[in-house]
Each structure stands twice: as structure tokens, then as C-alpha cells.
Design a protein around this nucleic acid. Structure first.
Lengths: 203, 203
DNA sequence: TACGATAGTGGACACTGTGTCCAGTATCGG
DNA sequence: CCGATACTGGACACAGTGTCCACTATCGTA
């Protein structure tokens, strides 16, 4: 029996199935893809499918996992300058998204807003961590949580737009714009949670 | 034949179906709800369903439409102070969301990120309009578009969190925090689209 | 109130997709 | 080479969809 690694046939089949799924999502959207479609596309028997994945969703999760592996393993903290203002990870997210554009759109959600829970949680974790470092707040702070959600929502939305839209904006540019929008906004609110001036809200 | 208004029976049936859908979504999530479920819950024959809506999605759209009607008709520009810094509509969005919390979560998407296209587009329009007023940009500006997406993503995400989370934060408070995060961030970026200082980005 | 028009009913039907099972065959790796 | 493992394809039961139709209930109006 194979000790550490996986049987060639298993690797082959799973690879084919994941590839097939991505191709079919691009063609007609995740919801419209059936298990039979995937098997036909991958040249794999339908019963074989079920020996590897219990259903379509699990195949998708596995594909996402595979797709995000490089992003997860590479440590996004580059310069390790603890007092740098700004995110260090968002740039690599944008870069990775562009590099694997077609697959990214298929798996993470292009025009459709169907970002899987997994991804959402992973990004939230990154954001929360960096936000914690940047601000004096502890992780359980309500303001920090709101800020995290704020940034995650904004990041995903901007990224989806950027991938769908065919403007030639480089990852560096979109990241700069994104961070420009985030800071001087989120950070200010985080440092001064109570409305200090009161000039902005007439009510 | 009924001239202007709708036959009582029609109104009754549609109302029952929409109510049933909402209740079932709360119970087990939109995806798991079947047409048969809806009909059973509503005490309506299955064939009747199809005389009103071609499928589950259309029923949902109709329900959303119904649910958003009050928000759409009330003009969100209250004070008509054109130079006020800040959004005038987001507050009413938060208020409406809280007031119809259960239904809102069911239809617009609570823990699941499945905000229907329709809603997304409507909110985008509001945001784009107000952002256009607040900045010197014309509607077709790329920066404005990015900012719009940024704000929409952030708003929806924060709202979903707020509805799911049982922190007792009033609509006024969450709106204040939200706007605090948006402005001094988005507006700065919009007024100075090129990185004027260059102090923030070491690369 | 009577009556024509319209809406609702329930059951049958064809269809598509899911998930399970199994005996037979191909391929792997030691 | 050969035992272990994976793949195959076809059958099966099941659940849900969407359509159709004859029949009944209810509506609005004359």
C-alpha cells in the first residue's frame, strides 16, 4: 500500500474532477453544474465521483483549498515593520487574484456574490489580525469587529469589481487605492470611537 | 373583470406564499426550501403556485420587492443640505433593517452572503449618487466606481454582521460608526486619487 | 341574486438530478 | 507477478420540478 503519498489514480481523478468543475462553472455558473456534467467533462464514472467527494459542494471546497494553498503558505508579512501603517496582505491577495483570474472568478465568485464561507473567514482572520496590530484595540473589541467586517466587505467587493471589470489597473494600483480608502477612515474611527467633533451628524 | 385592483384571491394567495417562504427560509435556509414546502406551509395547491410564479426565485424576488417598497418610496434625502458631509440614506437602511429584522435576514441574507443582485444594484445606485454629490467627480469616474463598490461592500457586510450579532447597537450608532469609517477614508482618496504624500506605502 | 369570468385544487405525468450499491475490470506499487 | 486498491457502468429508489387538465370555489358585476 502507498505509505505517505497518494495513489496516482486518486490524484489523477481528483485533479480531473476539480479541473472539470472550474471549466463548467466558467461556462454556466456553479448552480447549473451537475455531478453528471462534471463526470462527463472529466471522463470519470459517476460512481467514482462519489468515492472521492460526497457532493458537488465538497468538490468545490477541495478545489478552493487547492487554489488558496500558495496564498496561505506564503507568509504575507514581508518587511516585518510592526509600525507600518497599512495592510501587508491585501496586495498579495490582489496579485494572486489577478494571476489566477479565471480560476479565481470561478471559485471565489466573479459577478455573482457567492464567496464561500471558508474564504470569507480566512480573509476576516487576516484583516482582524492586522487591524489588531495597527490599533491599540484588543481582539474582542466591538469597534475592531465592526472595522473588520467593514474592511472585509469592502475588500471582497472591490476585488470582485476589479476582476470583472476590464480596466487595466495593476494589483499595486488597486491595492494602493483600496488602502487609501481604508485608512484615514477606519483607523480614525478606531482611535476615536466616540464622535469627538460632532460636526458631521446634524441629527 | 377587476379593472384596477387585483382579485382578492390572487392577493391572498400571493401573500400566503410570500409569508410561507420567509418563514421557511428562517427555518432551514433558502436553498433547502422546496416549492412543495412553500405550498404546504401556505395551504396552497402546488399547481396554484405555478400560476403565480414560474419558480422559487421569482417568488423570492417578488417578496423582496414587497419588502423594500417602503424604503424605496420614502425619499431618503431628508434635510436637503447639499453640502452636508455624509450619507443620508444609510441611516434609513439600518433602521429599516432592524425594524424588519427577521424578514430582512431571511430575504436579504443574514449569516449567508447571498444578497440578491437586485438589492445590490439598488444600494449601489444610492451610494453612487450620494458619492457623486459629495465629490467633484463625474459619474463615470473610475475612482468613483471603486469607491462605490468599496462602500457598498462595507455597508452590506457591516449590516449583516449587525443583524446577526446580538449586540445592542442602535441604528443611529451603527450608522455613525459606519460613516465615520467611510469618510476621512473614501473622501480623501477621492479628492486625491494620486498618492500625494507617498508616506504610507513603502514599496 | 344570478351568472360569467377568473382563481384554486389535486392528482397524474414526464423529466432531471441525486446518492447508493455491486459485480466486473483496470491499474498501482511492493 | 500478484494482492490491494481504484475505476467502471448500469440498475435502483428517491426527491423535486414543471406541465396539464377536468373539476370546484369564489369573485365582481349587472
Amino acid at each position: 500500500m502507498p505509505v505517505g503519498s497518494i495513489d496516482r489514480r486518486v490524484a489523477r481523478t481528483r485533479g480531473l474532477l476539480q479541473q472539470a468543475l472550474v471549466k463548467l462553472i466558467v461556462e454556466k455558473g456553479y448552480a447549473a453544474v451537475t455531478v453528471e456534467d462534471i463526470c462527463r467533462q472529466a471522463n470519470v464514472g459517476r460512481s467514482t465521483f462519489y468515492t472521492h467527494y460526497p457532493d458537488k459542494d465538497c468538490l468545490r471546497k477541495a478545489a478552493i483549498d487547492q487554489h488558496l494553498k500558495p496564498l496561505r503558505t506564503s507568509d504575507t508579512r514581508r518587511g516585518s515593520q510592526p509600525d507600518t501603517k497599512g495592510f501587508s496582505f491585501s496586495r498579495s491577495v490582489f496579485e494572486h487574484a489577478l494571476a489566477t483570474r479565471a480560476m479565481h472568478r470561478a471559485l471565489i465568485g466573479g459577478s455573482k456574490r457567492e464567496t464561500p464561507e471558508e474564504i470569507h473567514d480566512w480573509i476576516s482572520k487576516q484583516v482582524r489580525r492586522e487591524l489588531t496590530d495597527l490599533s491599540g484595540h484588543c481582539e474582542s473589541s466591538i469597534e475592531l469587529e465592526i472595522a473588520t467586517r467593514f474592511v472585509v466587505g469592502a475588500l471582497l467587493e472591490v476585488m470582485h469589481w476589479w476582476l470583472d471589470h476590464d480596466a487595466d489597473i495593476s494589483p499595486a494600483d488597486i491595492d494602493r487605492t483600496f488602502q487609501q480608502m481604508v485608512f484615514d477612515g477606519v483607523k480614525t474611527a478606531l482611535d476615536a470611537p466616540t464622535d469627538a467633533g460632532g460636526k458631521r451628524h446634524p441629527s
